[in-house]
């Protein structure tokens, strides 16, 4: 059943991505001020949205683990956080390249970039911590604590770095302020978000299956030792 869902989602995501690519590269004109480079937005924004909501979801799942003590929550939290970290990396990398071309620097010490990097580091630490603990229940407990504290801390960092001068453009999406983009240009962002979300769902499902494998290996090892 799970295999079928994964394959179905993969076909859907691939089709949607191909269609989006077609729209982005052949249908849409270059942007007035930035030229061709603005097309990075179709990956930059969805990847960051996915990364951010993934970290938030990871925190909720970690709380879920702490409340229920059910290891499946922990496995799901770990999978979601790891996939989110990949999307956060994509967001950072595309952002950096975009900044190089438009602002002339690889990295601007703007509050959103900086706090996003802090967030990236925190959850990178989360994954490193998971590797350093062998005992599954202890690992789940520690990871959940780090996830909750990390998310709270990431939000506080975001707010505190906001004092600094900022160079990043204000939000251009219509959900925030009624839209600063031409109508035809915004829609592909949301379609791409959907496609990448499907893609990340696939990744999370694969990761979940791996967590199940790891748990099974662990149980079998224990049995082997008990014999």
């Amino acid at each position: 059943m799970r295999e079928k869902i994964i394959i179905g989602l993969a076909i859907f995501a691939a089709g949607l991505l191909a269609w989006n690519m077609n729209t982005i590269f052949t249908q849409l004109p270059d942007e007035l001020n930035q030229g061709a480079i603005y097309r990075i937005i179709y990956f930059h924004v969805p990847a960051n949205i996915l990364g951010m909501s993934g970290f938030g979801l990871g925190m909720l799942l970690s709380i879920g683990y702490l409340v229920t003590k059910d290891l499946r929550y922990d496995a799901l939290a770990a999978s979601v956080t790891e996939v989110s970290l990949v999307f956060a990396s994509i967001g950072l990398a595309t952002g950096s390249i975009w900044a190089r071309i438009i602002w002339g620097v690889w990295w601007a010490w703007d509050y959103r970039l900086t706090s996003w990097l802090v967030c990236w580091l925190i959850f990178g630490g989360y994954l490193m911590l998971r590797r350093a603990v062998d005992e599954p229940i202890q690992r789940a407990r520690f990871a959940a604590v780090v996830s909750v504290l990390g998310t709270v801390n990431a939000y506080i960092s975001y707010k505190s770095i906001e004092w600094w001068n900022t160079q990043h453009p204000q939000p251009v999406l219509s959900i925030r302020n009624g839209g600063g983009m031409a109508p035809g240009m915004e829609a592909p962002i949301w379609w791409n978000l959907l496609a990448l979300a499907c893609f990340s769902a696939i990744l999370v499902m694969v990761r979940m299956r791996q967590e199940a494998f790891a748990r099974e290996i662990d149980t079998l090892r224990r049995m082997a030792h008990a014999q």
Binding site: I122, M128, V133, F142, L149
Partner: peptide, 23 residues
């Protein structure tokens, strides 16, 4: 307290703690 029983305790503590200390 969290890292005390880990392998690589001396390495894990700074990597986890410094990003948290940023604000």
């Amino acid at each position: 307290a969290l890292t005390v029983n880990l392998r690589l305790r001396e390495l894990m503590l700074p990597t986890l703690v410094y990003p948290m200390m940023i604000p």
